[in-house]
Design a protein around this nucleic acid. Sequence first.
DNA 1: CCGCTATATTTGCCTTGACAAATATCCTTT
DNA 2: AAAGGATATTTGTCAAGGCAAATATAGCGG
Lengths: 155, 155
Amino acid sequence: MHGMVTESLAHPAPEESLGVLLGLVRSEIVRAMEAELAALGVELRFTQFLILKRLARLGPMTASELARAVELDGGAMTRQLDHLEGRGYLRRCPHEQDRRALRIELTAEGDALWQQLTDCNERVLEAAQRSLGETERRRLHDYLTRVLHALRDKD
Amino acid sequence: MHGMVTESLAHPAPEESLGVLLGLVRSEIVRAMEAELAALGVELRFTQFLILKRLARLGPMTASELARAVELDGGAMTRQLDHLEGRGYLRRCPHEQDRRALRIELTAEGDALWQQLTDCNERVLEAAQRSLGETERRRLHDYLTRVLHALRDKD
DNA sequence: CCGCTATATTTGCCTTGACAAATATCCTTT
DNA sequence: AAAGGATATTTGTCAAGGCAAATATAGCGG
């Protein structure tokens, strides 16, 4: 056996750059979430989960608002809506004030699904942060938020 | 000075979950990096940048090792190598001890390119973390590493 | 009212990356 | 040394997302 890279996989290089580290953590969270969902017999991708979450939390909104809320391309959103509507989780209604737009709302079925998912989310995040104390969790969130702002408001 | 996260009503959402926040920060970093590269006249995707970085930092290795090092699928790696080799940045050499494997090494051109990129990376990360002090940067890295381990060694 | 610009949604095209199959080569075991 | 299982690389296929064009509608200024 020639390539002994296994060690660097078990413990990522100490000097892992922030960008890489973020990618690794995120992909693990996504993987864990999708595994949890699958264990519940729910076939949902992380993105779809996020869409349902937004709708459940914030109530009906247009497709564009939804797309912006989850930072998803408009075209991609259309296709996700096709998918989720086809499965009966949400509905495209005409928008009352704007005939260009849609009013996307959860169906009763989508709402019921969300009841199942809500603590699935909690479980994964709890597991992910289980080695962090309360203060550390707040700090992590705070730091990430500040980094995000630094990147966006580049001045 | 910790709880001073501004929950502005503008665009950033209040109380983003960790998974989402990570995704947002990462995509901003990727975007910023690619913009910096483009500004240098270098057409490289973030993934390709990472591949070159690994090669420059760790020296020649096989395609599989490289794939594992950047957490990329083997098939995807083959195609990225096609691309980077076609542009003259690296070379596929036969592996001396293992005839299945390749020895991927930077060309002189690839090495020269890396000289340009090395501080481009620094700039972006510095900008991203500019609002964090030295201690906070270390903590952020530490927390992320611990979360990663919690997710991987799940027990 | 008319033209102009901006926004909402959909669709087509393209790239990327995951997964699986095929092939070649190793390495261990018998 | 032959068998069997593991690993390296490549290729095909697929789903997801970004970007651009097309269409419909809003909303504003003249």
